[in-house]
Design a protein around this nucleic acid. Sequence first.
DNA 1: AAGTGGTCTAGACCACTTT
DNA 2: AAGTGGTCTAGACCACTTG
Lengths: 297, 297
Amino acid sequence: MILTCRYAPYVPQREPPHAPGPGSDHVPDNGSVTGPKQAPGPRADDRPPPRHRDLRLAVDRASPVPLYFQLARQLEAAIESGTLAPGSLLGNEIELAARLGLSRPTVRQAIQSLVDKGLLVRRRGVGTQVVHSHVARPLELSSLYDDLLAAGQHPSTRVLQNARGPAPAAVAAALGLPESCQVAVVHRLRLTHGEPMAYLCNYLPCDLLEPATPELEATGLYALMRHHGITLHSAEQTVGARAATAEESRLLAEPAGAALLTMQRTTYDDRGRAIEFGSHLYRASRYTFEFRLLVRA
Amino acid sequence: MILTCRYAPYVPQREPPHAPGPGSDHVPDNGSVTGPKQAPGPRADDRPPPRHRDLRLAVDRASPVPLYFQLARQLEAAIESGTLAPGSLLGNEIELAARLGLSRPTVRQAIQSLVDKGLLVRRRGVGTQVVHSHVARPLELSSLYDDLLAAGQHPSTRVLQNARGPAPAAVAAALGLPESCQVAVVHRLRLTHGEPMAYLCNYLPCDLLEPATPELEATGLYALMRHHGITLHSAEQTVGARAATAEESRLLAEPAGAALLTMQRTTYDDRGRAIEFGSHLYRASRYTFEFRLLVRA
DNA sequence: AAGTGGTCTAGACCACTTT
DNA sequence: AAGTGGTCTAGACCACTTG
């Protein structure tokens, strides 16, 4: 997962016509007292980076996969495998294009997609190089959903409630529905290895989808919605923390008043309709939320 | 802020040559029991969307600002102001290009940047339309850093410790430094309106920067690093929750054992060097973390 | 069948960085 | 001065959606 903070393409020096000059692209400021989870590679130094002209690259024009995407995948694989070492230069775009028999814009599109992923860095007058620390991979795959369904976690779902009812005011507002409109109300307990992990309350407009309990127990809500032909587009999330109530601590098998990680989310489809509002509680003792933040200067 | 979950461009139907087909692009599955913060616009229906050919657009070729960026800004302004109503179609790219005297790729670049921001949606065979709910704006600006420094919050910083010391094992690992290497250790209390808000512990390689206490009290750590010529590139963050220790609750003026929001972060510069590790504690009673998630199908 | 976006080409000029 | 990425053009063909 990539959290892009702000957009601001290169702009020549005279005239600062819009906000995003240097000094306005922030990454949040954080910190406390526990340890990180893994060591990146050895510390990078400032030796002149090696060049790579001998990379084996080839595209298949008969394939239905877009050329730029084929190239991007090969470069990504080379970076992951270490063939393209961190810090090495990619060789200029024109040469790369010539070697592959592609046009420069196509090569640029491939490279740009990797820059967007944080695997490459482009510097004008210098070249394109592989980011030194390649910690990108593990984090790309991590997400709350993946964490819950991850291999070896043996996730399961217990449906506590699945009914139709009037939307609470806050939910109606989030979904853009009239007050007290009927919605599908789903309360679930998500377990891993049979242990409770999260308590999930979701609300869905009932003209869109009323999930069946067996479906809910067999899969995640999003997979279910996709299966019903809904195209997810975006979501707005708020993460916080609070102490568990008596009932919550009972449900989640936590001590009374334990710290819980909270998340509220409104999800939209590709037409911009709100299709779901969720209010979730995670056991902080077993759960964290990881992501990667990219600063686009 | 935009959290992009996964990349996978359009791929023709035969042959699923790589992972990201439908069904592999997930948004995390969340939820709990409080209310959302604001109502989006009225619920979108399925009326045929209006067309917009009468939008006033013009680019200035004498300006140093890239043409695609000028266009993107104008479109964004039109969306925000409501001139381009949610759901309205943009008119096809060719026509738009002709009207502006631009080439199609340039217009596409402008549109793509707004699609990346989540303001527009493109559908093949249909057209480009404005996302129905335009809640994007407020969330774009929100970030932990912005929240703390936001207008009206009167943020301030109290430096509790600013010294050089050996890196704890976990910190050394995160920064890619040898065990017990000397690092700059900074402990700060961040206040808003004179009230404690967060307790921030940061570690920096001392060959990079040793911040002066007055600097730390006058500004944020990132602004300070940028001021010293460091180019931020990316960060990896982990968000969680736990109960406060006795000392933490005292520092943050919270009751004993209160739930705190935790965040750990490693920041990298544009050469991939780890330039900072932070471990932060936020008062959950006053602080949440908001972001937007875009699903790229 | 018509209209849309998705991809691709083969050039071009400019701005920035380094030597 | 040389080399790099940043931007831009004017076309082209294809795949998908809708009527």
